[in-house]
């Protein structure tokens, strides 16, 4: 009989550990803010979250980065997010009324990433259609793939990729390993990747612009605090951080 309380204790402990229910959030003046943001915002939003915590003592910002469509699916399934920043308007649109007031805060354009030194001598979008060139793109279901498809339509260049990846980071992985000659990603991804890739700018980049919207979500625990984070992103400080990372103005 003594084992039963023992088992119960183990089970309770496991649940507590798994749900993160510690004693830490027992203090009254501590507040949590959960921000869901597109994977391409990883660096900038991590920095902005730190700034926000500094400006708002006692606030802890939890960030979760992923493909915009993944995040939308999680939010629809009830993930406890207060703010959502999407890599395109299409995914933000899927949230409908869940997004209280979407505002564009940045824009991103496509750029070609090649292995360091650009061994295949890619000079522009046209080159990606060359037979024998191994090009990796995002699949059309995700924003960067959608942008790629649009660019192909506008320029009449028909790329035959060797792989349609699920995210920008998968595309970059294939490029940095040298197995692909080129990959189509965002300007900011090339910037963030540093020396591990060589970027090739697109003359046509301005023709397909991805607008990044951000919104407080319906059901945010603390709508005021959430709005304060959105305001930071839209502020001069926020815009500078984004511009440094290669984002353009919305």
């Amino acid at each position: 009989m003594t084992s039963r309380p023992g088992i119960a204790a183990v089970a309770t402990a496991a649940v507590l550990v798994l749900t993160g229910c510690g004693s830490a959030n027992g203090q009254a003046d501590e507040r949590d803010l959960t921000v869901f943001a597109a994977a391409s915002l990883t660096d900038t939003f991590t920095e902005l979250a730190e700034r926000f915590e500094k400006e708002h003592p006692g606030v802890e910002v939890t960030t979760s980065f992923g493909g915009s469509s993944d995040l939308v699916a999680q939010i629809e399934d009830g993930a406890p997010a207060d703010v959502f920043a999407s890599a395109d308007t299409k995914n933000m649109g899927k949230l409908g009324d869940l997004a209280t007031d979407p505002r564009a805060f940045a824009a991103n354009t496509l750029e070609i990433a090649t292995p360091p030194g650009n061994p295949a001598k890619i000079s522009g979008f046209q080159d990606l259609a060359e037979p024998g060139t191994k090009v990796v793109v995002c699949t059309v279901e995700v924003p960067c793939g959608n942008a790629t498809a649009e660019m192909e339509k506008l320029t009449g260049v028909d790329i035959e990729p060797v792989s349609e990846e699920q995210s920008v980071s998968d595309v970059l992985a294939k490029v940095t390993s040298g197995d692909a000659d080129a990959g189509l990603v965002y300007v900011t991804d090339v910037t963030a990747a540093g020396d591990s890739v060589t970027g090739v700018e697109l003359e046509e980049s301005g023709r397909v612009v991805n607008s990044y919207p951000i919104s407080v979500l319906d059901g945010a625990d603390d709508a005021e605090l959430a709005q304060a984070f959105v305001d930071l992103v839209l502020s001069e400080t926020g815009q500078k951080v984004l511009a440094d990372a290669g984002f353009s103005q919305p």
């Binding site: 699949t139 349609e164 990846e165 699920q166 992985a173 294939k174």
Partner: peptide, 13 residues
Amino acid sequence: TITFAGNLPGVTS
């Protein structure tokens, strides 16, 4: 597969 072979309908998907 997705890490090594990539994803292309009819070829690796």
